[in-house]
């Protein structure tokens, strides 16, 4: 039973100088209840746009998206972790998390509990600009969980963090999704990260984005990001589909993400 189904016939942006650019065409995939799905594709291929359609920020597209049977922005609550932490700099850590909580959740102390779980108990009254980048991501992740989401959207959330910090945050993410039974859509361009985290990987082709390969990760859990099994799977995958990550640094499609 799929929790999320996306069937996007067409998504275009109007460029500043006039004319339309097609970002997504005939993109179809589904996510099961409690499934962890990674979206992998070259940067600028429309991954962020896809998350914006699913989250309901951008309601203009041809096609249909259903989350638990409802249209984006109306159905079950979802958590969204952006590429940057996007914390309100004028609010303390605790205020940032409380901002998006229901009054009922605040009453039973959910923000404090989440922050403690995420190792931030000593920093609840700090302002974000006094925290390290890794800690700010943890606050952002706690905030995404504070709505008790059925679906969690993550947009390259651990990019630009150093390796040990990123590793700890990934484990924190996996632990909490398992615990809460959250469905996850995790966007990345790092194949190793995807193989480490995902139940299934949806590879996107370059613009206009569509599904190039829907791949179920056969590795048992717990996994290790530098294990031989993961590495050989990665090599195997790239041997079978040499063009899978092609255009990892595309020259012609970078402007779309910037344009947005």
């Amino acid at each position: 039973m799929s929790f999320l189904t996306a069937d996007i016939a067409r998504k275009t942006f109007t460029m500043v100088g006039g004319g339309d650019v097609e970002v997504i065409r005939d993109l179809r995939f589904a996510i099961g209840d409690g499934e962890f799905v990674c979206i992998v594709g070259p940067s600028g291929c429309g991954k962020t746009t896809l998350l914006q359609l699913i989250s309901g920020i951008d309601p203009i597209y041809d096609g249909a998206i259903s989350i638990g049977g409802a249209a984006p922005g109306t159905g079950p609550r979802l958590g969204y972790m952006f590429q940057s932490d996007r914390l309100m700099p004028w609010m303390t850590v605790l205020e940032n998390v409380r901002l998006i909580c229901s009054p009922e959740a605040i009453k039973r102390g959910l923000p404090e509990r989440l922050l403690t779980d995420f190792g931030l108990a000593d920093f609840v009254n700090s302002y974000p600009n006094r925290l390290s980048g890794g800690m700010r991501r943890r606050v952002a992740l706690a905030r995404a969980y504070a709505v008790e989401p059925k679906l969690l959207l993550l947009d390259e959330p651990f990019v630009s963090l150093d390796a040990p910090v990123a590793l700890r945050l990934r484990d924190l993410l996996m632990e909490s999704t398992r615990e809460h039974g959250t469905s996850v859509l995790f966007v990345t361009h790092d194949l190793r990260e995807a193989l480490y985290l995902a139940d299934r990987i949806v590879f996107l082709a370059k613009r206009p984005a569509r599904v190039a390969l829907d791949f179920t990760v056969p590795l048992p859990r717990p996994r290790s990001i530098d294990s031989a099994a993961l590495e050989s799977l990665r090599t195997e995958l790239l041997d079978a589909h040499p063009d899978l990550l092609a255009g990892l640094v595309p020259t012609d499609s970078a402007e779309i993400e910037e344009h947005r």
Binding site: L78, R86, I100
Partner: peptide, 8 residues
Amino acid sequence: EVGRVYRL
């Protein structure tokens, strides 16, 4: 956008 995603 944060405010909109979390439906404030």
